[in-house]
Design a protein around this nucleic acid. Structure first.
Lengths: 184, 184
DNA sequence: TTGAGCATGTAATTGGTTACATGATTGT
DNA sequence: ACAATCATGTAACCAATTACATGCTCAA
């Protein structure tokens, strides 16, 4: 469960309220680890109970500003260096490929060409963000740029793969015939 | 929710019991869409209620063999061609990168070098599986090979990215200092 | 006769999403 | 006064994981 670590990581930089964290999640972390308002407030409660964060100060409108405790700081470091990252377990796009023998070749080709176009657009968008971040500069952006670069390379790889895949398709249209038929 | 579609896709090839499906999930689908025994039996119940699958025959030990209905077949086709695949939303490894300014350069380098090694091993393993599948042949393996190729390219890209990233690290060790400290 | 493998199901818990509910402050 | 935004919290629901629970069949 990395949500707790995402919160610890943000609080390491500066103390923040649930409301502040939500904005950061939506603006910066949305594409690597989305979280909802509901989740954040719940998790801040859990983190407080387990002593990893603490309410530093209370402000207007019931605002509670959280900060890391020493235990929270240690847990963040432990997670960063000692815990093996879990690769994503599920991939909707790849799951489909397993069943493409159900389609005829022209349907499969249409699908793969669309994947290539979408990946190309994604790549262009990420490059734009990347260049903007670079222009804005600042030493803190180093790791942001490294993260973005992964996205750029992933999009590029996906586009190339989809183009390659559509060339691998059998040239004759051969939708497999069902063995038997029944209406539920 | 793609589990239902994974089940439909497998049942399109041949009728199967929950037990059969579990084996196929563990052997073939584990890396793109894992599912547990519990999930499969529950989902087969839902699919039956909604008329997408039907019990074709019952065998020894209470075995129930499921097959697609016409509605199930239509739903599978609809999903394959009309529904945009959802890209994975969460990436544990990338989330870490956001917080790497908390580490000093040597810790970050160690981490990234390990990523590169792991990705390289992964790539080798997938190439081996790929070559074996190719040798075993059969027209049904076309899409299996396309899926595997994605994995190979992803691993390669990850390795290259991790190597590149470790070169981007600032040369001086500069762990950010905490602004303030408190024990919960 | 016994153990491996076949075969199904339910319960409890966790993590995530959507929706509901409420209210305070601040700038115009 | 009013709207925008700040700010927190809970409830219901869904998907996934782990654990619990039971029993049959077949081959050695």
């Amino acid at each position: 469960m990395s949500l707790r670590h995402a919160i610890l990581g943000l609080l390491y930089r500066r103390p923040a309220s649930g409301y502040d964290l939500l904005k950061t999640f939506n603006e910066s972390l949305a594409h690597v680890w989305p979280a909802t308002q509901s989740q954040l407030y719940t998790e801040l409660g859990h983190l407080t109970s387990s002593g990893l964060v603490v309410v530093r100060s209370e402000g207007p409108r019931g605002r509670k500003e959280y900060g890391l405790t020493e235990a929270g700081d240690a847990e963040l470091h432990h997670w960063l260096v000692d815990v093996e990252p879990e690769p994503p377990r599920r991939n909707d796009a790849l799951l489909r490929m397993f069943f493409f023998d159900r389609l005829d070749t022209s349907e499969a080709r249409t699908y793969l060409e669309k994947r290539a176009v979408v990946a190309g657009r994604q790549q262009a968008a990420l490059i734009a963000v990347s260049e903007q971040t670079e222009r804005d500069g600042g030493p803190l952006s180093t790791y942001g740029l490294i993260t973005l670069e992964f996205g750029v390379r992933l999009a590029e790889m996906t586009r190339e793969w989809a183009e390659w895949a559509s060339e691998q398709l059998p040239t004759i249209s051969r939708p497999e015939t069902r063995q038997d038929e029944e209406t539920g």
